[in-house]
Every structure is written in structure tokens, then in C-alpha cells.
Design a protein around this nucleic acid. Sequence first.
DNA 1: TTTAGTATTAACCAAATGGTTAAATAATGG
DNA 2: CCATTATTTAACCATTTGGTTAATACTAAA
Lengths: 212, 212
Amino acid sequence: MIEPLGPREEQILHAAMQVFVEKGRHGARMQEIADRAGVNKAMLHYYFRSKDNLYATIFRMVLGRYARQFRLSIDTSADVETILRRFIDGFLEMLNRHPRLPMFIVRELSEGGAIVGRVVGEMIEEGIFTVPRTMLHIIEERRDRGEIENVDDAVQFVVTLLGGCVYFFIAEPLIGVIFPMEETDRDAFVAARKEALFRHLYLGIKKRGDDS
Amino acid sequence: MIEPLGPREEQILHAAMQVFVEKGRHGARMQEIADRAGVNKAMLHYYFRSKDNLYATIFRMVLGRYARQFRLSIDTSADVETILRRFIDGFLEMLNRHPRLPMFIVRELSEGGAIVGRVVGEMIEEGIFTVPRTMLHIIEERRDRGEIENVDDAVQFVVTLLGGCVYFFIAEPLIGVIFPMEETDRDAFVAARKEALFRHLYLGIKKRGDDS
DNA sequence: TTTAGTATTAACCAAATGGTTAAATAATGG
DNA sequence: CCATTATTTAACCATTTGGTTAATACTAAA
């Protein structure tokens, strides 16, 4: 199914990913991709039929990375506190390493969401994009088991969790203006974010009377 | 300062807002704006010098609405529970009425955030875009007063709050795929979201021992 | 009614851009 | 060494699109 990519194809994909992630689907120029890959523009069409096709390929790749790194950070056997902590840690860590990733996806969502929906749907079926649902099941099960409380609707909880993780990386310039901070390096903010997000979410669902 | 707009200008602005919000800055076509306004394309340039200029005008307008409707939902004299509840209610209600709004802003953010930053900065100085900071001050003050706890970093709390409100409207197509729901009308989801978001956030900072 | 400024239009333009093509240049296998 | 196929390139093309312009209609004051 997956045939080995020739070196040219890899060059092109590498360059294309850079440009698409930076400039978005429409902002990206085939010429720029070709230049960065050190290749004639016609080669892009030779290997990948069209811009849309190239973009779709890149989109899958990016989302695949996202999902893979993402999946590592979950361990269904631990208690909710640990699971939540590790998830937030791992997710924010990954986003901090690839801060443009959320925006890349959101940009595509802004185009109507058709591609995102389809690709993610496929990846869910292929068992690649499993984390959000896994998290959902964990929360539901632990609630039923009585380990946590105040989670009538686990979907809502997971949405809040995801939003809490991702929002900063989308709205960063806005947040910088609204809350001007002195020494705003992103690393420090993200570190604080990990801790705060965990506390705000966990303390809400933690069973009263627990002192862990 | 604000001169009354002629009817032509209003027609154009109305159409431009529609098209820009739908298609984004780059996706929007001057011709389409002209058509929807029932006006010759040259008129757009006659009244508003360039596409960028027209866009900037629209962006300010949109953000202004956002801020105005937004500000109504805050009442500094109430207790934190009420403030939080009203804020979430009001904000989500507004977003539900204008679901494309967050994406409109985010799309511009994806372009680098320069415009958003500048405009929001100006609006903050003009006292139009005050809610997030107001919320911040309220949280800090109430924490110091001992009304709530577990809020080491109020900025983080407000970011979580904003993200929790906005995220769904950005990631909606994605969420629909990840968590397929039977009767997914948005109104119901948003209603549930109001309640859940409030609980998750408030229960985390509520003073233990309170039974309100 | 003349005049002077304003509003409006159709036709036009230059630049950008995704995509094509025909010819040239490697590779590859017989 | 030849033929056939795959790769590469420069030049070219059609279309889209923001923007301009010069001529025309409109309006209101003098």
C-alpha cells in the first residue's frame, strides 16, 4: 500500500509541509514550494497531480503526526488524576514544540471543515486518531465507577479539556494584547498553563473528601 | 469624528461583512461584494480605497459588535458564581447567534495576528474591549477577598474560560466527527455546554464547604 | 440654464498563479 | 549500443483578480 518515496518526493513533501503550515492552503505558492525543494515547479505536478492533491497529502501527514504523538500520552490503567495530568502535560508539550499545528488545522476548518472531517473520520476508523474518544470512555467509566463526580456529560468535559489545551496556541497574539505580561516567554506560560488547567479541571470533578 | 454613512456606503459595508465573514480576507472577492451590494465594483474603490482598507473597516466593525454585546454580560457587584454563570451564558448565547464570528477572528489571527493585535489594542485603550481584563480583576479581587480558592494565576483561569467558550465554535466540524451525536442540533449542545462549562470551572475554584 | 462637483459605469490593465507542453536529458533494460 | 521509459526543464497559457480610467449621468447651487 505504502510505496517507498523517492528522494524527490521527499524533498517536495518536506518543502510543501513547511510552506503549507506557514502560509495555509491558499497563501502557499507552488513556486515557493518548488524553490524551497530546489526543484522545477513542473515536478510538483509531475509527482502530485495538483496543488489540492499535494495539500491533501500534507494534511494527512500532519494530522498523522499529531495523532501519533498525541496517543503516547495516555495510560488507561492509572487513576484519573494521573491520566489527566499526563494528558495535559503531553499534549501541551507537543503543541509547544509545534505551535503552528493547531492553527494549521483550524485554518482548514475555516475553509468549511470538509477535508478535516473526512480525514479525521478516516483516521478514527483506522485507529490512528483515538485519543479524544479514549479519554471520553475513561471519564465515563470512572464516573460510573464513582472515582469522580460532577460529570453529567463527559463529552462536554472533554471538549473543555481540548479547548483548554489548544486555545492558547490559536489565540496567542490576542492573549498577548489582552493580558500584557512582562517576561512572556511561551515556555513559562505553557508550564503555568499545564498546572493551572489541570487544577481547574481536576478540582471540579474530584470527589469531595479526597486528599490526594 | 464619525461622519454619517451614505446609503451606498452602508449597502457596501453590509455586503462586505457578509462576504468577508463567510470567505475570509483572501477568499472574499471584490466582485462578489459588489454584486451582493448591487453596485459597480469600481464603487468599492471609490468609497473605500482598497480591499485591505475595506477589510480593516469591516474587521473593526465586527470586533466592535463582539465587544459591545460581550460587555453587557458582566456585573461586577454580584458574587463569583453569578458573574461566571452570566458571563458564560451571555457569551455562548452571543456566539450561538453569530457562530462564524470566532472563526472570522481566528482566520485573521492565522494571518499573523498583526491586524487583530493592533485593533484589539486600540479598542482596549478606547475602553470598548474591556471584558477579559475586567473578568481578570474580578477573579483576582475575589480570590484575595477569600471568596474563591485555587486560583494562583488568574490569567490562566480566564484563558481557560475563554477557550472553553470559544473552542466549540471553532472546532465544531471536528467535534462532530470525533463525538458523533444523534440529535446534534447546536442549540442543545450549546445549552449543555453552558451548564457543563460553568460547573467544571466553578466547582474547581469554589470554596470547599460552601453549599450554594 | 449654466456650472461645478459628485456619483456611476463599462472597458481595460498588469500582475500573479496554477497548470500544461514539447523538447531535452537521464536511466534502464535488452 | 539502441530503444524505450522515466525524469527534468524552460517557455508558455488561460484565468482570476485587485485596481484604474476615461467617459457619462446626476445633483445642486448660482
